[in-house]
């Protein structure tokens, strides 16, 4: 019999491959599969939404004093009771949460802006400039964040924003290191060389290839920094260095309520619980995001 051979270079049979959208759906599904992380995300979003839209909830204004109704326990009028000046505790907690979250975001933003672009560039370029800048960031990291924040507050006066910027500065080396390491790994990949061989400029390579491939490492660091930012703000405000009365942050609420621990323990417990829950939720979500996205980087 005669032998026939199919065309050697003919189209090949494609095994079932997953399209990019299906992959995104799969990533999302993998995340939602983690009950704990999903719960954490929902709780976190609820707190954030409540904090953002507090004025629309029909609560009393957070700074309006109602001296007749001081230190009340929970009631229908005041769901979480009132503080020593008769202000609605729920309204104050929501306002304080907004300030705390904003402060944490400031710190994170400063860290990202200072650390990430430089880290990506140095990871890709390398050389002597890289080692000089890396040493500089190492030095910066040796400063304890809270001490620097206290020092800055001592210079510019009691205000939350400079303190949080200080914390952000001290956090920037971590962002620098993470993005530099990730960029250096990606820089060795052939697709970067390929892009360069097509005439692509370096800054565009960073934007198109490098940033996408370091994003999952960054997401995790952002979540860690946010959580730490909330705790740092609480610590600073507890020391009286952060936000000034009558505005409240979660930390300053703790301070003022600490004196009344025996008379009205709920005033300490309530903001304390919010701090813990926020920090915990952010960490859980960050961890889950890392687990879900790191699997896809390998391929």
């Amino acid at each position: 019999m005669t032998l026939t051979y199919p065309d050697a270079a003919g189209p090949s049979v494609l095994p079932a491959a997953e399209p990019s959208e299906a992959r995104r759906v799969a990533t999302l599904r993998a995340f939602l599969h983690r009950r704990l992380a999903t719960t954490a995300l929902v709780v976190f979003l609820l707190i954030v939404l409540a904090a953002l839209f507090a004025p629309l909830l029909g609560l009393p204004a957070p700074n309006v004093q109602e001296l007749a109704a001081r230190l009340q326990g929970p009631s229908w009028k005041h769901l979480l009771g009132t503080d020593e000046l008769g202000r609605d505790q729920l309204a104050r907690i929501l306002a304080a949460t907004r300030i705390s979250l904003w402060a944490a975001c400031q710190a994170t933003l400063v860290g990202v802006v200072l650390g990430v672009p430089l880290g990506l560039a140095m990871g890709l370029v390398g050389g002597r400039l890289d080692s000089i800048i890396s040493r500089a960031f190492d030095t910066l990291q040796s400063i304890p964040p809270l001490i620097l924040a206290i020092a800055i507050v001592a210079i510019v006066g009691r205000s939350l924003t400079p303190a949080m910027i200080a914390i952000g500065i001290v956090f920037s080396p971590t962002f620098y290191r993470i993005s530099r390491a990730a960029a250096a790994t990606v820089a060795g990949e052939t697709y970067i060389e390929a892009s360069r061989s097509m005439g692509q400029r370096t800054h565009k390579i960073v934007l198109t290839h490098v940033l996408g491939n370091v994003s999952s490492a960054l997401i995790v660091q952002v979540s860690i920094t946010l959580a730490f930012g909330i705790l740092a703000e609480a610590a600073l405000s507890y020391l009286g260095l952060g936000v000034q009365p009558p505005s409240a942050s979660l930390g300053s609420m703790l301070t003022s309520a600490a004196n009344l621990l025996n008379a009205a323990p709920q005033l300490v417990i309530e903001p304390g619980v919010v701090i813990i829950v926020l920090a915990l939720c952010i960490s859980l979500v960050g961890d889950a995001l890392r687990d879900v996205t790191s699997g896809e980087q390998v391929g």
Partner: peptide
């Protein structure tokens, strides 16, 4: 099709292809 890939490959990511593909 000139390189032996089917048209629906456009939307897929490299991970799902073999070395030759």
């Amino acid at each position: 099709p000139r390189v032996g890939l089917s048209a629906d490959a456009v939307h897929r990511i490299p991970r799902s292809f073999s070395g030759g593909q």
